[in-house]
Simulated assay, not measured.
Amino acid sequence: MTLDPDAKLPETEEGTVVYNTDPLIIRSHYEIDYIHSYAQDSEFFRALGRKKLMGSKCKKCGYVYATPRSHCMMCGSETEWYELPLKGRVHTYTTCYFSGEEFLNETPFNLILVEFDGVNSLFMSRLIGAETKDIYIGMPVKAKFRRNLKMNVTDVYFVPDVEK
């Protein structure tokens, strides 16, 4: 065994760009490619291309999940696919002033938890088309879908459901 109390990390000429010192604001770049399988959740993402939202329903106790899962969290039984309504209500919301890289240039943006009639859990998504001051608990919303799918959960978003 070798012990070296004088060991050091290698130094480079690269440093960190500092924009401000109080509070400390720095530049940080992060990029990586992932290859992954949606496995049992594949139907959720395929359905987005058909402009449908799919949740799951317990085959035994009937609990309906807005976010799909293979087994019920209430009784442990298997679930089956369940088509969710495309209209719901704002259960709660928050305004995001910081984000991951994909949405950083869209900040601030609003996230909502949507409640649907006949569904026991909530669905988180972005709400566009409303300023924060105009959002309220119980506000009617409807789902919209990207035309060019990215095959991720952000392919669905919500807008205010107002009568015209």
Rank of each mutant, 00 (worst) to 15 (best):
F44L: 06
S121Y: 06
L86T: 15
V153F: 14
K59P: 04
K59Y: 01
E78A: 15
V64F: 09
D134H: 07
E102T: 05
C75G: 11
Y82P: 12
D22W: 00
T2R: 14
R50F: 07
R69A: 06
E11G: 13
D41I: 08
G49I: 11
I112D: 04
V153C: 05
V18D: 01
Y97F: 15
T132N: 10
I32L: 08
E101N: 14
H71A: 00
F123Q: 13
E102D: 05
N120Y: 01
F123T: 10
E131P: 00
F98R: 08
S28G: 04
N110M: 08
S70R: 13
T92H: 11
M151E: 15
P85S: 12
G15A: 05
M74W: 09
L9N: 14
G15S: 09
Y65V: 02
E101H: 15
S56W: 12
Y157A: 07
S121I: 01
N105D: 08
Y82I: 10
K150H: 10
E83K: 08
G15T: 09
Y19L: 13
Y19S: 02
D134K: 05
Y93I: 04
F116A: 12
L111T: 07
V18P: 01
K144N: 12
T132Y: 05
S99W: 03
R50P: 02
E163L: 08
M124K: 01
